[in-house]
Design a protein around this nucleic acid. Structure first.
Lengths: 218, 218
DNA sequence: GTAGACTGTTGAACACGTTCAAATGCTCGG
DNA sequence: CCGAGCATTTGAACGTGTTCAACAGTCTAC
């Protein structure tokens, strides 16, 4: 019975997200998730092979919220620096409610081989969605970078995004103020580098960076 | 009895490192550590407040081994790119025996607030030692970077080092071949950027980077 | 030398993530 | 309608990291 299957699954995810918000990741026990979802512990494990896997739902949701928040801000802007800026700030805003347990969560995700790692196959859809957003950020900007570099730029901007996330996770400042400052400082550097990428002196550098990204991707 | 205290502590660290090597981090139980060290479980917790904390010993040892391996290679070299290269390759060599459990370990270390985080106060000595090594890497090279930038370069190179470590943790290739490739591709980029840092067009960029590092450091 | 305090040590007990054999419900060919 | 096969569900049980009340050993002050 597929409908029932879906209902049970959804109930478990919903209960988990609620509890994560209420008590954080560590503070949430599988027994509590099962109880709130109205199922047995074993049943939760029938659908999710580990506690870690329960947060994939949160993962997907965050990407969607980020997009929903960023797109309206992007409309009408053509300057790359400002497009990048609103996109990164939108992420910080979208992630805000999860700050407390995000640390633990991202630590889990940082584990190699973990399905929650942003580089894992399982996270492929969420990763692609995120990279695509940066593709749109670039598409709407009046820029004219080195063409070779241009092809890798969405992925490069996504890597910048990951860097911001990494910083955010460690950021304990009120309202993630330091992360916002980091964004404000980083964005002009990146925008300037992209603008300069056509300069003859920097051409070889651009090529090296392109090679590097391709190596990273396999 | 300070001597006994030290002896017990050492026995626990030693047992832990042995077992980590034999069975990995996850495969090592606190009960096994305590048994091999000839103490009770509770006693192990008297000295180390968690299993995670047991790996601080490994941390310190690795930094020392890295230095010991890098210094002889550095002697006689004056080209920055090659000095950077041998230093990073030396780290990969030093870390090789711990590849299997390093993933779990670094995941723990990536957790904000965790004493094992490279940014934590507890890891201060190991961090300083590592940054100092890069200070020496720079000191022995014939380079002439923007002076403002020069002051932040050791820390910047250490950040590059962290990036390599992060990649290495996820690298499953034979003999960490991909990480070595990454180093070979990254080092020329960094060396070129430093060389170019005096160029007028790049001056403002250098300043922005310096500001950024200072922000990161608090 | 002894009382008291402090340091070091013990192992049973706890809460948790996870597993698994067994029970229950569901589907579909006959 | 039956029953065989499959999907779903259960909760007790296991092994783990961690805690804690109790005990033992050592030092200090008198």
């Amino acid at each position: 019975m597929t409908a029932a299957r879906g209902r049970t699954r959804d109930a478990i995810v919903e209960a988990a997200l609620e509890l994560f918000r209420e008590r954080g990741f560590e503070g949430t026990t599988m027994r509590a998730v099962a109880e709130r979802a109205g199922v047995s512990v074993g049943n939760a494990y029938y659908y999710f092979s580990s506690k870690d896997e329960l947060v994939q739902g949160f993962y997907d949701q965050l990407v969607a919220e980020h997009r929903a928040l960023a797109l309206p801000e992007l409309a009408g802007r053509t300057d790359l620096a400002s497009r990048l800026s609103v996109t990164l700030h939108a992420w910080i805003t979208a992630a805000e409610p999860y700050r407390e347990f995000a640390g633990r969560f991202f630590a889990v995700a940082a584990q190699p081989g973990n399905p929650l790692s942003p580089f894992s196959p399982e996270a492929g859809p969420a990763r692609t969605a995120s990279i695509d957003l940066y593709r749109e950020v670039l598409a709407g900007a009046r820029i004219d970078p080195d063409p070779e570099l241009a092809r890798e730029l969405p992925e490069l901007l996504w890597l910048q995004h990951l860097g911001v996330v990494l910083f955010w996770v460690h950021d304990r400042s009120e309202g993630a103020a330091r992360t916002r400052l980091l964004v404000d400082r980083t964005v002009p550097i990146v925008a300037r580098l992209i603008r300069l990428s056509r300069m003859p002196v920097l051409r070889p550098l651009g090529r090296q960076v392109v090679d590097l990204v391709r190596l990273l991707r396999d």
